[in-house]
Structures are given as structure tokens and as C-alpha cells.
Amino acid sequence: MTEEEMIRDARLGDRTAFAGLVSCHEKKLLALCWNMLGDREEARDAAQEALLQAFQNFDRFDDGRSFIKWLLGIGAKRCLDRLRKRRTFLKYFQDYGRERGRPLEAPAMGGPGDGRAGRLLQKLSPRERATISLAVFEDFSAREIAATLGCSENTVRVHLFNARLKLKKEVADGL
């Protein structure tokens, strides 16, 4: 069964076709979430949410687009949501700890690579992380990233450049 046939059947509500479609791409989705969130379990949860959202909104999928890019776009947005919530959550607990005279440290998020290298991606801002994950690991163009994240192409280029500068500096500092 080709991808086009699976998409057509999934659009008619065939769950098996959707599952087939997903099984071809779920590792890519998981890799994106892992790169963005830096935590295996959280990445699996985010990928699961993205799949559910994709299934529920499948009638909005435009046949002219690539399915994997549509799915990865949903995944990136889910991860950005999680990163935003994580920041709020950490801020709350740090404030709470400060009030009690024992500031809490943010938990170190490990990356998917070897220990330190994996953590370098987590030094970037959420938007920079999303941009670099989509551009470098998933070959999205600046226009596709802009459409996914809801910003201009210029902003995407600046995020990319900033991310590259930061990573270069971090790598250089580590040597």
C-alpha cells in the first residue's frame, strides 16, 4: 500500500491505514521530540500527543503537503507547549524554594546523544531549538518552519543563526 493510498483510507476514517502511516514515521517524530525536549519519557509523551492530535485533525491535512512534514509540525508545536509549561512549572518551584530559603535547581535534562553533547541543544531557547531541530535534522526549509511556528522567514533565519552561534560557542568552551 502506498502512502497516498494510506492517506486516502485514513481520511475516510480507517484506523489501520492511519496506524500504517504513523508506523512509517513515528521514529522521526520521536527523534524530533527528543531533540527538542531532551528527555526520553517526555519525548514519548509529546509524540503520542502529536499522533492523537494528527488523528483527530486528519480532515485538515492538505493532500498537497508532505504527511511527515505536517506530522512533524504538529510534534514541534506540542513540544513548544511542553517547554512553555515546563518553564512556568520550574519558575513556580524555584520561587517556592526561594521563599523557604532553599532555592531549587532546575533538573538537568539529558539529551539523546552522549551526556554532554546531548545537553548542548538544551542550552538554546525553545524557539531556537525548534528551528534547529526542524532545519538541520528534518530538512525543513525556512518557509516551512515559518509556516509551522507562525513567524516570518526572517525570524526563522535569525533563530537559526543565533542557535549556530550559541552552539559553536558552547562547543568551543567545552574543548
Binding site: E26, L30, W34, G111, G113, V136, R164, L165, L167
Partner: peptide
């Protein structure tokens, strides 16, 4: 700026997750 090839070492790819259990 860090180039793409070097950045790819910092993250993971679908190929590296083949042994990861399915969702």
C-alpha cells in the same frame, strides 16, 4: 557558527532510534 554536520552529532535521528520500542 556551528555547521550542520557538527550539529547533527548533538542530537538524534530516526535511524539512531531503531531499537527504541514503538509508541
Amino acid at each position: 557558527a556551528l555547521d550542520d554536520a557538527a550539529i547533527r552529532f548533538l542530537g538524534t535521528t530516526a535511524a539512531a532510534l531503531e531499537s527504541e520500542p514503538a509508541l
